[in-house]
Design a protein around this nucleic acid. Structure first.
Lengths: 341, 341
DNA sequence: CTGTTAGCGCCTTCAG
DNA sequence: CTGAAGGCGCTAACAG
């Protein structure tokens, strides 16, 4: 009564079948890769389908095939500057394999359970998680037989396939370079206490410093720009201004620290060396040229998607960890020898 | 034969019904808001459901209710530093209304048609698009009766609901301030030629300059950091170094321009004023303090989601445009009177 | 309030 | 190669 245009009722395979004068199952076969339909008939069917704008209903399809083509992607801090790139790459690659991204952007850790409930309901084919999962949550996923791949983290409990950038190698390289260049008094700005990535990086840096007989001051942060600023202030206070190098758990905090140092009249890297981790875009800008480790996002996302796809095909594949070395970006925020590796 | 753990077959409402000794429809009703089940029976059913980890299969549900709970979100440059925030907010708000995000991160404009084909297949309830849609594509969406909301753009053809940040008001304010402060020789760094946002902003700035009897030099860009740098170089060349103010179509390019200017020994804002648009995080960092217009992302995403939700409920609602004023951030990259508005 | 009965749109044996 | 028939898991009238 109200709207002028008639609400176009969704076109089904029956509609196509009727107009093409064939059975519904013939239509169905035309859209299945390994079909077996007479060429002439197929052409006729496809012509009608195109005319009607028909495409198999993915919902109905998955109800029967038990494959939704959906992959749940769980990400904790989308605003983290590092993840947009990850998400874009991941989306593209899943897409290339005919899978769709069902996005779950987590606000707080407590959201995970609620998100998982939705994940169950949508019968996703698999999960890629760049968020903290409790052992119980990982177990729940396993119990449902859902393939899971962790991104930049490993499981605390049972082994789970994962893709990571090598924090130990990266931090070790940074620390060795700094120590070789004469730095002795170190400060570290960590990320959130419950962040796997932060713990890995801080742990690796501390361990390496210990090997050199050095012990760093460590202050907490939140992976954001302000934390870097605050971290620098705290470290200067704790060390009475006697700080040679600041190791930030990510680039964003490194940038914040660099700016805070400058604000206090300190020269970076003249008076203080600062290093980060990730290799995000802004780290490379002229104003910062952060000495850092760049994660090979392209290869990492490709690996994550491949790992998942394999396990969707064959759920019995054993867990596998893929560890990628980061690329050292010399930048100009730390006094280190540019030459040899 | 291979795996140790038995593959847990998905639990259905029949399983719950059997164990609870009731009919399948009773179980179904328990999960429907306006149910009508005897309290005792309901408790028993829910207990069994919880024990079995049962939740209605969203796929099967939507096959019959014609509501998938899925919203397709189309975004062109996820890496644009501005969109991550938008996506995170959007996701959160859709979530609050019980809707899931089916993400389509576009690489190229040409991808849109392929993406839309998938959108049809998944029977999404609606679409939010922060990507360029051709009139034919908008028409195709309308023909299927799919609610569509445009984000930061308006339709070229038939009217479509949209939420935008007011480019005209924003650029007008920036230009007026700059002119009032004595700037006369303007350069503009535009975004991609096919970007609606860029055209809006560049058009508004140019128009306002014309009102002041001024004509700017305009060079193209790509909305990224490098474009800002290149844009500055070009503008300096075109103007023989006689440039008072550079108006960038977004913050990222403003930042690039600021860095390029400094690299050439120019003081910003002493020798050159630079303004941007968006109010992204890095624009506020000490190193830049970009004079810009911040988009009210929270309110805009809320509006977009509300607009869409309303139209999913009632498809006959007329198109509506919501235009939000941006917030002026004085920053420190332009010589303008900080005082009055 | 409750169980029974039809499908939603499609895939998939199964005879022909 | 092809059509007929039986569900996938669930919701939505219907009678009780």
């Amino acid at each position: 009564m109200t709207g002028g245009r008639p609400i176009r009722t969704t076109v089904t395979s029956y509609d196509v079948a009727r107009l093409a004068g064939v059975s519904q199952s013939a239509v169905s076969r035309c859209f299945k890769p390994g079909a077996s339909v007479a060429p002439a008939k197929r052409d006729r069917i496809m012509a009608v389908a195109r005319e009607l704008g028909y495409a198999p209903n993915a919902i109905a399809q998955s109800l029967i095939t038990k494959r939704s083509g959906l992959v749940a992607v769980l990400i904790s801090n989308l605003t983290n500057l590092y993840y947009p790139e990850v998400l874009a790459e991941m989306s593209r690659r899943l897409d290339a394999r005919g899978m769709r991204v069902l996005l779950f952007a987590l606000q707080a850790e407590s959201d995970v359970d609620a998100m998982l409930a939705e994940v169950w309901r949508y019968r996703v084919d698999g999960i890629i998680a760049a968020a903290r999962l409790l052992p119980a949550q990982v177990a729940a996923i396993a119990e449902r037989g859902l393939p899971l791949v962790l991104y930049n983290r490993i499981s605390e409990g049972d082994p789970v396939p994962s893709v990571c950038c090598d924090s130990v190698a990266g931090e070790t390289l940074l620390i060795d370079r700094l120590v070789a260049a004469g730095h002795r008094r170190f400060g570290i700005v960590a990320g959130p206490a419950d962040s796997y990535v932060s713990n890995e990086r801080v742990g690796a840096a501390s361990a390496r410093l210990a090997r050199h007989g050095l012990e760093p001051l460590v202050v907490p942060g939140q992976f954001d720009h302000d934390s870097g600023r605050a971290g620098l202030e705290q470290l200067l206070a704790l060390s009475n201004g006697a700080l040679d190098a600041l190791v930030a758990a990510n680039d964003l905090m490194a940038i914040g620290a660099i700016e805070a140092a400058r604000a206090r009249g300190l020269d970076v890297p003249g008076d203080l060396s600062v290093v980060g981790f990730d290799g995000v875009g802004p780290a490379g800008w002229d104003s910062f040229r952060v000495t850092t480790i760049r994660q090979p996002v392209q290869r990492m996302t490709e690996a994550a998607v491949a790992l998942l796809a394999e396990r969707i095909e064959d759920p019995d594949l054993p867990p596998e960890r893929r560890l990628f070395a980061g690329e050292f970006l010399p930048g100009n925020s730390a006094r280190i020898e540019a030459g040899t590796l």
